[in-house]
Simulated assay, not measured.
Amino acid sequence: MSFLDLFRRRRDDSAAVAKERLQLILAHERAGREDPDFLPRLQKDLLGVISRYVPIQDDRLNVSVQRSGHAAVLEINIELPPRG
């Protein structure tokens, strides 16, 4: 490890955090909760992470959960601004 590595931002850290959050959400869903009260918090967290890299407005991100039998689908829609 060089001295400059101390000041470089590691991209795998944010990926690991995102993976951990999604695993927690899935575990939470599998526990049988019916009320998805975590969605507003998840949306806020995602917006914060994405806005570090791309300017995005609050209304351009939508998070929803759809249930069908024993399965649940977490759907995340993000409208990114056009490249300029």
Rank of each mutant, 00 (worst) to 15 (best):
M1E: 03
M1T: 07
M1A: 09
S2Y: 09
S2G: 13
F3W: 10
L4H: 09
L4S: 07
L4A: 10
L6H: 09
L6C: 12
L6F: 11
F7L: 09
R8C: 06
R8D: 05
R8K: 09
R10Q: 12
R10E: 10
R11C: 06
R11Y: 10
D12C: 06
D12R: 08
S14Q: 14
A15H: 11
V17S: 04
A18K: 03
K19D: 10
K19E: 12
E20Q: 13
L22E: 07
L22T: 05
Q23Y: 11
I25E: 01
L26M: 13
R30E: 12
A31F: 08
A31T: 07
G32E: 02
R33S: 13
R33V: 15
D35H: 14
D35R: 15
P36H: 03
D37T: 15
L39G: 00
R41N: 13
R41W: 15
K44S: 07
D45H: 02
G48T: 05
R52G: 07
V54M: 04
P55W: 03
I56W: 00
Q57D: 11
R60V: 02
R60Q: 14
L61P: 00
L61C: 02
N62K: 14
S64Y: 02
R67W: 03
G69N: 08
A72L: 02
V73T: 15
E75W: 11
E79S: 09
E79N: 11
L80W: 04
L80R: 07
P82Q: 08
R83G: 13
G84T: 13
